[in-house]
């Protein structure tokens, strides 16, 4: 990990009418870091993430992603990030191979590089023999892993993962995290939201969002110490207890 900053926000705020979904959130994410973004349903995680991806314009505050401004340089940001949403979102009626080709294509990966890189990726995932199968026929865990590979296929600087392991069994989740570590080792910054507190432990640093505010931000070890907790679960309960917003 170098000292370079991948994402930097300063009092970033998003209002929907009277409702403040994200309230003056301020944090820095270092290059190559795995940054966990935690919070209950409705705490504002997805809103914050969408602002950083250029999907949503902030109401106020500042932020840069990969060095680009979220107001004026969304096109530049889009070229330098990868994104995986909470909903599984590859084309089920296309094959594994076709999905990779398609997404690599629209991200402008040169044609000559797509095939060798895709081959290597699929071998690593153990999906090479299924490359001509329709994605619809794969088990959910494999779909998620494939989704992740597609999100980092164009070698972005930062990849945003919005609750990537929802509905996946613990073993597959562990394997999924292996992929995340691998990407992090290659210098890709990981910005991940999650509900699972065991996953929070895998992150280098985590922030806890409650009612649109960032209530805590530190390494998992430091957070546990500060709150005198045995596990991240306890830290989370301690922080989320005072939440006004109910989950959606």
């Amino acid at each position: 990990m170098t000292g370079e900053v991948a994402i930097s926000t300063d009092k970033l705020t998003k209002r929907f009418g009277d409702f403040v979904a994200a309230n003056e959130i301020t944090f820095d994410v270092k290059k190559g870091e795995i940054f966990g973004f935690l919070g209950a349903n409705g705490a504002g995680k997805t809103t914050a993430m969408r602002m950083l991806c250029g999907l949503s314009i902030p109401s106020s505050g500042q932020a840069t992603v990969a060095g680009f401004d979220v107001y004026r340089q969304t096109e530049e940001i889009k070229k330098n990030i990868g994104y995986m949403s909470q909903k599984f979102s590859l084309y089920e009626d296309l094959t594994v191979w076709e999905n990779i080709r398609f997404f690599a294509g629209i991200y402008g990966v040169p044609r000559s590089e797509i095939a060798p890189r895709a081959k290597e990726k699929l071998r690593q995932l153990g999906l090479y023999h299924q490359r001509n199968q329709l994605v619809a026929s794969l088990p959910l865990g494999w779909k998620q892993k494939l989704s992740f590979s597609v999100a980092v296929f164009h070698q972005p600087e930062i990849v945003f993962l919005d609750e990537p392991t929802g509905g996946v069994d613990p073993v597959t989740r562990r394997q999924f995290w292996d992929l995340i570590y691998e990407a992090s080792d290659q210098g890709i910054t990981i910005f991940v939201t999650t509900h699972y507190m065991d996953e929070a432990e895998y992150c280098h640093r985590i922030s806890m969002m409650v009612d649109g505010y960032i209530k805590a931000l530190d390494t998992p070890t430091a957070l546990k110490q500060n709150y005198g907790a045995e596990s991240m679960d306890e830290v989370f309960f301690e922080l989320a207890r005072g939440a006004q917003r109910k989950g959606d």
């Binding site: 889009k78 990030i81 994104y83 979102s89 629209i106």
Partner: peptide, 13 residues
């Protein structure tokens, strides 16, 4: 509905 639109909108396309 599938959520792929979100992915497309995040992409430079």
């Amino acid at each position: 509905e599938l959520g792929t639109m979100e992915i497309l909108l995040v992409s430079p396309f």
